[in-house]
Structure formats: C-alpha cells, structure tokens
Design a protein around this nucleic acid. Structure first.
Length: 356
DNA sequence: AAGACGTGGCT
DNA sequence: TAGCCAAGTCT
C-alpha cells in the first residue's frame, strides 16, 4: 500500500515535475547531478509563505549577484536588504545574511549536511531543515509545508482544524517519506499540492492519488484542510514625510532591525496607530497630498497621510539622512514605502539633481 | 504559545 | 471587493 502510493506519486512527478531555476530535474538527478545546497537553501528561504511566481526573479538576481555563500557573506547589509525589497517578511533577509556569515565563519564555508545541523541556522526551522536535507542531501527527512498539510488532510480525510492538526499530519507525512528518492518525493508532494490538490477546485480527476484518497471518496476534499478562523485586521493611521533637497537628494531613514520592515529603507514618519502623533523630521512648510497611501500588512490595514516638502541645501533633519538622487531607486523600498514614493514623486519631480 | 511578520494574485 | 492563500520562523 505504502510503496504503491509512493511509486504512483514519483511516476507522476517524473512526467510532470515543474521546472524551476533552483531545481534539479528528476532525469538529471537520476543521472547523478547534485543540487547546490546554497541554491536550495536560498530558494527555500525565499519560498517561505511566498509564491513561486514571486520568487523566481528574486532568486535569479540574488544568485547572479552573489553566486556562492562566501559572496553573500561578504555583501553589505544595505545591498542585500535593497535586493530583497518587495519580497516581504524582511526578517528572512536579515537572517539570510546572518546565516551566510555563520556558514562561512563557523562551518568552514559549507552548509551543514544534517537535519540537526541545519536547524541551528538562523531563519531555518523544521520545514526548511527538512527541505534542504531531502532536496540537497537526499536524506529521508519529513517535509511539511502548507501543500503537504493540505494533501495529507485530504488523503486521510482529517477534519481536525489547523494548526491543531499539524502533529497528526506530520506523522502521516513521515510515514510516507521514502528512503529512496526522498528529495524527488518531497518536491513531488509539493508539486501535487500546487497543481492538482489545490486549495480550491482540486483536480481530483487527474490526481495520481485519486483512488486511495479518503476525502475524494467522502466528497470532502474541497473543504479540507479545516482552519481555525482568523481575527479581523484593525485599521491604523500614520504620517509619512517625503522631503527633497534642492540638489535632488531624498530624505530617507533605515528602520531599526527589530519589528515591522526591520532593516529596510523608508520615509521618516509617525507611529502607526489609532491616533498617530505628527513629528516632521524637518521644520519646513509641509504640503499634505490629497491622496493617501493604503496598504494591508499581515495583521492590520494602514492609511498613510503623505506630506511633501522641497528643502534648501543646508536643511538639517532630526531623523534620517539625505540620499543623493543617483544613489536612490524606489525599487529598494518595501512596498508600502514605494506606494508613498509613487504619490510624492510626481509633485516633486521638477527638482533637477544637476543644478545643485 | 499565540501573535508578529509582507506582498501580490486570485475569486 | 474583501478575504483567502502561498515551499514558515521567531519570540
């Protein structure tokens, strides 16, 4: 029974594996090609809570700019954060650098090749340690992500809501993890979850596991996995100040490492709350824009009032510092800050960086 | 151990 | 459109 399940899935994977920049195809793997642990690790960090479509370009840019873990370890923090801008969950980028430096400084420049060793790395939890173990080193470690949870909950018609069901689903997944081809198997379950056993409208008719699937038999597949309901997001307000100096420089600040958007570049501003306090970084004549910047984070909605000003060469800000126009790109901003830029840039566009 | 932590795409 | 969802980790 177990072997039949595994073989049916691997056969399906051999014929239907998705092609990705970080992946070794089942055919190449069979021919002896070994994945680069650095690239596997990088892809798994980027893929945490993030879609393949969103990751692809970031992965290509990161690995082109920093081809090895030693290259990444030697990078400037600000360059890495700027390159990560827009991908979200910025603690991942801070941990990415920490991890690269740890591997270079404490592991002789090679990624640990055991599950326990990987688990010690910053930003690497049970999922990523399992994924790197199996995909990069072909170790039979269990890999449980959102796809696997969904697939297992349906295969065994498990109705206990997540996250309470996580331990049971992990045991189901562990029992199916093969000694042979664990890396291909892990990627096969995730591909199945991403393309066939999807959250809505699962394509049960073409699923390699349609016969053994308990939820398919019970007709409950579309409603699984059950999840405990989420809390509503509160509304918060804030102010953002965009100052441009007469030589074209922008007033920006690097946010503290801890907390929301930690380590990222942004516009000086107020706290984000029910009743934010105005605290302009410069004493000047601020102009309030008509439009506001709306953004939704994981746990709250935000409406930002944007204020702009053109300031003289000798302006002395109480927060942030002026960045020359030539050194600034809006693509280095997290998305909420880029929305502010998009609103402010037009009215401020007439400043000529060359006239100084 | 429950909440913090981003973003874009899809329905 | 408002909400759900995506290869989770940290505290």
């Amino acid at each position: 029974m177990r072997d039949r399940l595994i073989n049916d899935l691997l056969d399906w994977y051999d014929a239907n594996a998705r092609v990705m920049p970080w992946r070794v195809s089942p055919a190449d793997r069979k021919a002896g090609v070994k994945p680069d642990p650095y690239r596997v690790w990088m892809s798994e960090i980027m893929l945490q809570q993030t879609t393949v479509a969103a990751v692809r370009d970031y992965f290509n840019r990161f690995t082109a700019r920093w081809p090895t873990v030693a290259d990444l370890a030697a990078a400037d923090d600000a360059d890495v954060m700027a390159e990560w801008a827009g991908l979200g969950y910025y603690a991942r980028a801070r941990n990415l650098l920490k991890c690269a430096r740890f591997v270079v400084d404490e592991c002789g420049g090679a990624f640990p090749d055991t599950h326990a060793g990987l688990l010690k790395l910053p930003g690497v939890g049970p999922y990523t340690a399992g994924a790197v173990s199996s995909i990069a080193y072909n170790l039979p470690e269990v890999v449980v992500d959102g796809n696997v949870e969904r697939v297992m909950s349906r295969l065994y018609d498990e109705h206990t809501p997540l996250p309470a069901a996580k331990p049971v689903l992990t045991e189901y997944a562990r029992a199916l993890t093969p000694i042979d081809r664990p890396g291909d198997y892990a990627q096969a379950v995730m591909d199945l979850g991403a393309t066939i056993c999807t959250p809505r409208n699962p394509a049960c008719g073409i699923c390699p596991w349609r016969d053994p699937c308990a939820a398919r038999a019970a007709g409950t597949a579309p409603e699984l996995p059950k999840k405990t309901p989420k809390k509503p997001k509160p509304e918060r307000l804030g102010f953002a100040y965009v100052a441009r100096r007469e030589d074209g420089a922008w007033l920006l600040e690097t946010r503290p490492d801890k907390g929301l958007l930690g380590g990222m570049l942004g516009w000086p501003g107020s706290d984000w709350s029910d009743a934010p306090k105005t605290n302009p970084p410069l004493d000047t004549d601020w102009q309030t824009l008509n439009a506001t910047a709306r953004h939704t984070f994981t746990h709250f909605h935000l409406t930002l009032t944007v204020l702009i000003a053109r300031v003289p060469k000798d302006a002395a800000p109480s927060a942030g510092s002026f960045v020359p126009a030539a050194d600034f790109s809006p693509s280095s901003l997290p998305t909420v800050m880029r929305k502010v830029y998009d609103l402010a840039a037009d009215p401020l566009r007439h400043i000529d960086p060359d006239q100084s």
